[in-house]
Nucleic acid binder design. Structure first.
Lengths: 165, 165
DNA sequence: GGTGAAAGGTCATTAAG
DNA sequence: CTTAATGACCTTTCACC
């Protein structure tokens, strides 16, 4: 079994990440391959789900939501799906995971300000089934969400799950 | 002061998120406005930083990293910047925040498998300055990262910080 | 490879705050 | 008066067959 992507895929993803506006033809020039190759690779990557799309990357801070926080929620037994639906209905909840450990769910929320965060938290936790919540405010973001290093690593791995002693 | 985006901006972002492949001309048709308007709005949104770009959305799971975890790290005083540099050098660290609370940093990491997660964690915490680490594995992801509801809310807010009692 | 179709830019006019 | 939207025109560039 080989890695899900090869070196060319990796270079292509890197190139598109750094300069999203360029087209297929420009890619083929930069990568020194035929345009058909680039198109085929792109189709394959999208078909395999490696690339989900090219949607606009929206910055919540620029939308007026500069405050980010992570809330760990403890859920009472059997109320999981109701809680999920509730959290999904809150626009300020950007992301929700169920996790192992004493907390049962972890969600990322944003707010207009620290004061406004109280309003959001009240809305988030104001629901039957949420037993306890602890919130941590994000101060700095030294590493913004990125996948390029991961792509580079995946592209140079020969086997899908390389041997590790 | 008005909201950073208006209703047309919101419709444009929503449209581009739902159908990223369509171009400016198609947008202008769907939104029933002139092409120049769409172009001007897009330029403005990018200039203001509301839209950061149109890079490919890469799915780590499809790259062979289906396991996601959140690690809370406790850092010894004064070692913050070294730890940041170290974490930034680990490809599996997708994101890093400094946070309030007993933990000092929160990072999102991915791995090939639960077993492989051990290797990643060892690499993450194997660094002077990291006192303690607690890791929560993400099981399900009921709400994938999304900003559309937030965009819709921002677009309908008249003032940047609407009055809240 | 050739061809129809967009993207991207500029302009004058018009409308609205 | 300032800002924005519109439709027209043009050139370059790309996507598709």
């Amino acid at each position: 079994m080989h890695s899900p992507i090869d070196a060319l895929d990796g270079r292509l993803i890197t190139l598109l990440t750094e300069e999203p506006r360029i087209g297929v033809l420009e890619c083929s020039r930069r990568l020194q391959v035929a345009r058909g190759t680039v198109q085929a690779r792109l189709d394959r990557l999208q078909a395999r789900g490696v690339i989900n799309g090219f949607g606009p990357e929206v910055e919540p801070a620029a939308l007026g939501y500069p405050v980010t926080a992570f809330a760990t929620l403890e859920i009472s037994q059997g109320q999981g799906s109701d809680v999920r639906a509730h959290l999904a209905s809150v626009p300020e909840v950007l992301e929700l995971h169920t996790i192992t450990g004493q907390g049962d769910m972890l969600c990322r929320i944003v707010a207009h300000s620290n004061a406004d965060l109280q309003r959001v938290i009240d809305r988030v936790v104001g629901f039957d089934g949420i037993v306890r919540a602890s919130t941590a405010i994000a101060l700095e973001n030294p590493v913004r969400y990125r996948v390029l290093p991961l792509v580079a690593q995946a592209a140079t791995e020969e086997a899908e799950y390389p041997e590790r002693p």
